[in-house]
Amino acid sequence: MTDQTALHYTEEHEWIAIDGDVATIGITDYAAEKLGDVVFVELPAAGTTVTEGTVVGEIESTKSVGELFAPVSGEVVEANQTVVDSPELVNSDPFGEGWLIKVNASSLPKFLTHAEYRALVGE
């Protein structure tokens, strides 16, 4: 399991792990719980250029459809095909096998810390 205190967060309930120029992106356990049972995930293909703040994918659950926003700008270097094939991983392991995309980030905006994010969601 990923050390959640070492991650960065957005107000859109995404987490970001930075490793050099690559940002691994997923949704938080809070977002996964609010969505309910995830049944479909659509992600951008590797090679796609994404722009910070724009919709780049979709997460559908038995309760609703949520949009995936790019928290960084850059080129998608990998989309998690395992999550596309087994969307329930978003619920069961959102900080591990349930990651969504990896982006070669051209720049990193200011993110929330773990403590700031937990305060945002009232935990």
Rank of each mutant, 00 (worst) to 15 (best):
G74V: 12
S73T: 15
L7G: 11
T48S: 13
Q4H: 00
E12G: 13
S73V: 09
T49H: 07
A45E: 14
I101N: 01
V121Y: 03
V83W: 03
A46S: 14
G20E: 09
T51H: 05
K110H: 10
W15Y: 04
T113Y: 01
T48D: 15
V72F: 15
E67G: 11
A31Q: 08
M1Q: 07
T51L: 01
A32K: 01
L108P: 02
E88N: 02
G20L: 10
H13A: 11
F69D: 05
E97G: 07
M1P: 08
E75T: 15
T10S: 09
A105K: 09
V50D: 11
L35H: 05
I101W: 02
S61D: 07
G53W: 13
N80G: 12
L100W: 03
V121S: 04
V77C: 11
I27A: 00
E97M: 05
P44C: 01
F111H: 13
I25K: 09
P87Y: 01
V56Y: 08
V84E: 06
A6H: 07
E11I: 06
D21N: 15
T2C: 07
P109V: 10
L100G: 02
V121L: 03
E58G: 05
F69S: 09
D19I: 04
I27H: 06
I25F: 08
G57Y: 03
L7K: 09
S92K: 07
L7F: 10
L100Y: 04
G57A: 08
G53H: 13
T51F: 03
Q4F: 00
K110N: 14
D21M: 13
L108T: 06
A115W: 00
E11W: 02
A23D: 12
T54I: 11
V84W: 02
T24N: 09
I59W: 07
A46W: 04
T49A: 08
V50K: 14
H114L: 00
G53M: 12
G36E: 10
T82E: 13
T10H: 11
L120F: 06
I101Q: 03
A79W: 00
T48I: 09
L7H: 08
V83H: 07
E88A: 07
D93M: 05
S92N: 10
A6G: 04
Q4L: 07
Y117D: 03
E116P: 04
P71A: 12
G66R: 10
T82A: 12
K63Y: 11
W99E: 03
G98K: 02
T62M: 14
V84A: 04
E58L: 08
S107L: 06
F111M: 13
L35V: 05
A70P: 15
T24G: 05
E33N: 14
S64G: 03
P71D: 13
S106H: 09
S73N: 11
